[in-house]
């Protein structure tokens, strides 16, 4: 078990380094943005670039890049946006927004999704199941931005119940009522997709478990249907569902590119999109670093969690 975990972590690190190296080389192959475009003191910009080692050979730069990250968590400074400010600091101010929005959304979505999925599975092939499955199919297929637009149009414009953009941290704390209220439209839009995915998954898993022979045995030995479902079916159905929920929780760090953009939430996803559109390579690299790491860690944790949740699953065996 331990051996397997270590092997997986080492492989993850290897994958991560390969990806970052590719990105670094590809980004460094691009010409730097013209100094004139920066519209500031040309000399100053050139000096800063010199000081940051932009004129050194690419291998040296690569070495320096990793050294700065590993020793100081330093990803450089903004070139096109937040000019001269430290990338790490800016990113750390953005992450909480993403976390707050996503946290609310999954806290709402998980109970709803689980309940709907369980209900649909128990009523399989009855009209309740068909109704829920059709709705899930709709919400699963319709792109997230479409219901984001709908939510924005109805809740922000037509009824005016909620403000159009997220409150800033200067005005209100992250867990204050003002902040929550300003984020409700985004939270709802995000929750749709999660609810749909979770309902679908739960329904599929539970209805598969419900056909198992041991459930028949449980009924035969005298358990009521409810007892059999809660004590036997649910616990087995949860084996694949829990890792999925765990993955969702890790994913809250990453925010959502498109929802943050639509509702102008100054989160990490929004920062990423801006860094791409204005071509700020330092921010782009830092964000890529963050996202890639997040994806890899989430995948690893989800995979390993199977072994912890269900001891019958032996890790690393085929």
């Amino acid at each position: 078990m331990l051996k397997y975990v270590i092997k997986r972590i080492l492989l993850m690190i290897l994958t991560f380094i390969v990806i970052m190296t590719m990105c670094f080389v590809l980004i460094k192959m691009l010409p730097l943005p013209a100094v004139k475009e920066q519209g500031r003191d040309v000399q100053l910009v050139l000096q800063r670039r010199e000081a940051m080692g932009y004129n050194k050979p690419i291998m040296t730069q690569y070495y320096l890049y990793w050294r700065h990250i590993l020793l100081a968590g330093d990803f450089g400074v903004g070139e096109q946006m937040y000019v001269g400010q430290e990338v790490t600091k800016i990113m750390l101010t953005k992450i909480p927004y993403s976390i707050v929005v996503n946290l609310y959304s999954i806290l709402i979505a998980i109970p709803i999704g689980l309940l709907l999925g369980i209900y649909a599975a128990l009523k399989k092939n009855k009209w309740q199941d068909h109704f829920i499955s059709t709705l899930v199919m709709l919400f699963y297929s319709v792109p997230s931005y479409v219901y984001a637009f709908l939510v924005q149009y109805i809740l922000c414009f037509k009824t005016g119940w909620f403000p159009l953009t997220a409150a800033s941290r200067e005005v209100a704390g992250f867990f204050s009522w003002t902040m929550f209220r300003s984020m409700v439209p985004a939270v709802i839009s995000l929750a749709f997709g999660t609810v749909a995915g979770l309902t679908r998954f739960t329904r599929a898993e539970l209805s598969e478990v419900l056909t198992g022979d041991y459930l028949l045995l449980a009924r035969t030995k005298g358990l009521t249907r409810n007892q059999a479902i809660t004590r036997h079916a649910m616990r087995n159905a949860m084996v694949p569902i829990l890792p999925m929920i765990l993955g969702e929780f890790i994913g809250i760090l990453g925010g959502s590119l498109i929802i943050e953009n639509i509702f102008s939430i100054p989160g990490i996803g929004n920062l990423y999109v801006t860094s791409i559109t204005v071509r700020d390579y330092n921010f782009f690299m830092a964000d890529t670093f963050f996202y890639t790491l997040l994806g890899l860690v989430a995948g690893l944790v989800v995979d390993l969690s199977y072994g912890f949740i269900d001891p019958r699953i032996k890790m690393g065996q085929r």
């Binding site: 990806i19 071509r279 994806g295």
Partner: peptide, 22 residues
């Protein structure tokens, strides 16, 4: 399998951006 593992770990948006830039 390792090659496809590495490729699939790259966030799609990074791939799309790098291709656009280059």
């Amino acid at each position: 399998e390792r090659i496809s593992d590495i490729l699939s770990s790259v966030p799609f948006i990074v791939v799309a951006t790098l291709f656009q830039l280059h």
